[in-house]
Design a protein around this nucleic acid. Structure first.
Length: 630
DNA sequence: ATTAGGG
DNA sequence: CCCTAAT
């Protein structure tokens, strides 16, 4: 085995590790990631070449657009752009294109359905080229989020559908977005525009550096997927190189790690694990504000390219002189109105979160964040208020609604409400367990349970106990969002209600709510971080002193036998961090300080046992049995 | 199921 | 803590 390992290293031209310390399972410790990296250039080339060939022969629409196709797309971009400038494609085909791209793997944005829908609705309402360009562009990159979209795709200007951004005010600061719309656009179209602006102010990302390519990009910072989408996507994505950071569709719908929003994958656990992993990673990535199409094979270092893209994007916008035209005399249709996007109210359904008392505030916050994010991502309904009055008729033109130049432009407000499982965005919904009773005006009350297996046994260093809030628990197979009940009728009007605080469940509510009380952790849910207490560390050190490193199961049985939440892997990990902690300066240490004496013991034990292991290995290697060490 | 090690 | 390869 050692020989083989050496051969491996030799073939790579690496040095044989000086210390063959690791006993049995240190063999081929190539991580999958590493392997992938090694393979990917060839893989990539092959794929690109193949796709290019195919693409040349079949230049129509290739449904299974993959990264290579995207490259092709990018390479053709110029001509595409020219095409668009010279010849505005029919709205329908644009929409189709977008949708195809959306399902093809380049863009897995769960937003796509919305976009397609919006396009359909706009189709229904007429074929205003301006409208088209506005709705079709899900990928406007509006850095710093506020923009004044001027009319694009204007042949006379040769802008070719590139939205332009003039303003640089921040949405966070002003909560306003100015949108120029043709006066004839109806409110539905307006909605679609509004919905393309991310709540956090970040716009959907852009796929290529040229926004006119029309290839949408993943909206990556939020995984707004649904199981529908995921399933649909899975078919196309099946042969994709499943990079861990791949596009949204491989990130299942839930935001973060809340099991409540896990899709019900009944399949094998490995798949579930993969999804769970991706969810978590997506959640992490999300926090970094990643917006790039990491699903692309071409994107080998997503983050960098992502930022590069943003830079390119910004530069692009910079380059283009903002054109703000409030009035176009040529045709009535082209008259634009500038709508100030001011969110008057933003309501989120009331939530119940059940969480163990010993969970950290941080985890509570994360949970709330996840839930809220999920709900938001499941769809927002935009309401338009004109002088405080809600405009219900989506088919009215802005002019008919008197949202036009010189009229009510200052008096228009928007409201955002969660869609609450309505058919807002196809495929986006809150988990199956959610059974909304209310009519569409009703907000669901989600009961979210943040639970984890909990048995603080004899180790009992901390005295937390499990929260058993509800005496009305009902077993349920699935995750944790279990049910809803009707909320009180919700005021969607001009009440400038902020985010509804997480409330605690009322008893009658609980009576209705079946809550899962499962001992095993929900798939995809990260365990609550529970730092080792000092007594735990002492117990661990003592056990390792006795048993050595490498017998973690025994260590577990010796010292943590009754502590379910500490697995032997945890113990091993803790030991690892202890060793690390002991080897760094006290100033660099974080967390609850471990007495130096204990750390000294850690180092001593570590040194001792690693020496033992070495001896065992060298004994084996020299074929001397255990004579030396016995 | 365990162990080791990377992230 | 998580994930995974190799036992």
């Amino acid at each position: 085995m050692v020989v083989r390992k050496r051969l491996d290293y030799g073939s790579r031209g690496h040095q044989v590790p000086a210390m063959p310390r690791v006993p049995s399972s240190a063999r081929g410790k190539r991580s999958a990631r590493r392997k992938k990296d090694e393979m990917s250039p060839f893989d990539l080339l092959a794929t690109v070449a193949g796709t290019l060939l195919v693409d040349h022969e079949n230049s129509s629409n290739a449904p299974g657009i993959n990264a290579a196709a995207a490259l092709t797309y990018a390479r053709k971009r110029k001509s595409v752009k020219a095409e668009k400038c010279d010849d505005v494609p029919p709205l329908k085909s644009m929409a189709v294109e977008n949708c195809i791209a959306g399902s093809g793997g380049v863009c897995a944005s769960p937003r796509q359905p919305n976009i397609c829908l919006a396009e359909n609705s706009s189709t229904r309402n007429g074929t205003d080229p301006v409208l088209e360009s506005l709705t079709v562009k899900p990928n406007m990159l509006v850095r710093d989020s506020v923009f004044s979209c001027t009319k694009s795709c204007n042949r006379a200007h040769g802008v070719g559908g590139i939205p332009e951004c003039g303003s640089s005010r921040s949405l966070e600061a002003t909560n306003q977005v100015q949108v120029q719309r043709p006066l004839d656009g109806d409110t539905t179209a307006l909605y679609s525009l509004v919905s393309s602006v991310d709540l956090d102010g970040r716009p959907p990302a852009l796929v290529s550096s040229d926004s006119s390519s029309g290839v949408p990009l993943c909206i990556h910072d939020k995984d707004r997927n649904t199981s529908h989408l995921c399933h649909a996507e899975a078919r196309h994505a099946a042969d994709r190189d499943d990079d861990e950071n791949s596009s949204g569709c491989t990130h299942p719908c839930t935001a973060g790690n809340n099991k409540s929003y896990m899709p019900q994958y009944a399949g094998n656990s490995r798949i579930r694990k993969m999804f769970a992993s991706k969810i978590r990673k997506a959640a992490r990535n999300k926090m970094c504000g990643e917006m790039s199409n990491k699903g692309s094979k071409l994107n080998l270092c997503g983050k960098k390219i992502s930022t590069t893209r943003q830079r390119v994007q910004r530069a692009m916008f910079k380059r283009q002189k903002p054109v703000r035209r409030h009035f176009t005399p040529s045709s009535a249709k082209g008259i634009l109105t500038e709508v100030k996007l001011r969110i008057k109210s933003f309501t989120i359904p009331e939530l119940f979160i059940e969480i163990p008392e010993n969970a950290t505030v941080g985890s509570l916050k994360r949970t709330v964040m996840d839930v809220v994010t999920s709900i938001i991502e499941s769809g927002l309904r935009v309401g338009v208020l004109l002088q405080g009055k809600s405009i219900q008729d989506d088919n009215k033109t802005l002019r008919q609604a008197r949202i036009c130049h010189g009229e009510n432009l200052e008096n228009i407000d928007f409201t955002l409400e969660c869609e609450a499982g309505q058919n807002s965005s196809p495929g986006v919904r809150i988990p199956e367990e959610m059974d909304f009773h209310g009519a569409d005006a009703m907000k669901p009350l989600a009961m979210v349970k943040c639970e984890e297996p909990f048995s603080e046994a004899k180790a009992g260093y901390n005295s937390q106990q499990r929260v058993q809030a509800s005496p009305h628990r009902v077993q349920s197979e699935h995750g944790s969002v279990h049910s809803l009940f009707e909320t009180t009728a919700h005021e969607a009007s001009a009440s400038s209600q902020a985010i509804v605080p997480v409330a605690s469940p009322s008893s009658e509510a609980l009576a209705i709510v079946p809550v899962c009380k499962s001992k095993r952790p929900a798939i995809g849910q990260r365990r609550i971080r529970r730092p080792f207490s000092l007594p735990e560390v002492e117990a661990l050190v003592e056990a390792v002193e006795q048993l050595g490193t490498g017998r973690w199961r025994d260590v577990k049985m010796l010292a943590f036998d009754n502590t379910d939440h500490r697995t032997y892997v945890d113990l091993k990990d803790k030991w690892k961090t202890l060793v690390h902690t002991a080897s760094i300066s006290p100033q660099q240490r974080r967390g609850e300080p471990v007495p130096q004496g204990l750390l000294d013991r850690v180092l001593a034990a570590q040194a001792y046992w690693s020496q033992q292991q070495q001896q065992v290995i060298s004994g084996k290697a020299s074929g001397q049995g255990c004579s030396s060490s016995c």
